[in-house]
Amino acid sequence: MAIRLETISAGLAKPLWVRDGEDLRTVISAINKTPISTITQPRTIQVISTGIVGDEQADPQVHGGTEKALYMYPQEHYPFWSSLLSESKGQSIHLEHGYLGENLTISGLSEYDVYVGDRLRIGTIECAVTKLREPCYKFTAKTGLATAAKAMIQGARSGWYLRVLQEGRIQAGDAVMVIPGPRECSIGQQNLALLHRGD
């Protein structure tokens, strides 16, 4: 199956409401991403060593920096999240790409297909897979669902981070070429390890 870049999303750091016991407080987060290049409206986007030009991360120690410059997520998981949130909120919810905080929404690749150290070529950029995305309290706050983080790891629906090896330009519709690395640990296996660590 062909692997394709479906959507590129970016966003700025803004206040996010989080629940702290019985209280509500705000933290700064850039989890809210908006599509800036789609299949129906492709636009060329510049990528540098720290990620998409114009995109922000609020806490580079957790998300961002050169080791987590881009966050990639399979669009195949979106029906699961739409169904889960629709059920929890009692109304039909359709999620747009970027909702999970990802920069690159792709098709044709899952967590069990991708290994740490694999290289991905998209447009004129080249990236290396570094690790899974570990969901934090900001993800729970974004979804409004207490079990969201656990559901992400249990189902190996974490997505993964990329380091930019070669800067360049990408746009929605670009093919994604995988160049296998050592193939010692898949992102799916990292999900399982994280799940067992929490037991």
Rank of each mutant, 00 (worst) to 15 (best):
R4T: 14
E6Y: 03
E6P: 00
A10W: 02
L12I: 13
K14D: 10
L16F: 04
V18L: 13
D20E: 15
L24E: 09
I28L: 14
S29F: 11
K33V: 03
T38Y: 01
Q41I: 06
T44Y: 00
Q46T: 11
S49L: 09
G51P: 04
Q57K: 13
Q57R: 10
A58P: 07
P60V: 07
M72R: 05
Q75P: 01
E76C: 05
W81H: 07
L84F: 05
E87R: 11
S88D: 04
G98K: 00
G98R: 01
G98H: 01
Y99N: 01
L100D: 01
N103Q: 14
Y112S: 11
D113T: 02
Y115T: 02
Y115S: 08
G117L: 10
G117Q: 04
D118M: 06
R121S: 09
I122M: 14
I125C: 08
E126L: 11
E126R: 12
T130N: 11
I153A: 06
Q154W: 10
R157D: 06
S158H: 04
Y161H: 12
L162A: 06
L162S: 02
V164K: 08
G173P: 06
D174W: 00
V176T: 05
P180G: 11
E184I: 08
Q189F: 05
Q190C: 10
L194Q: 09
D199V: 13
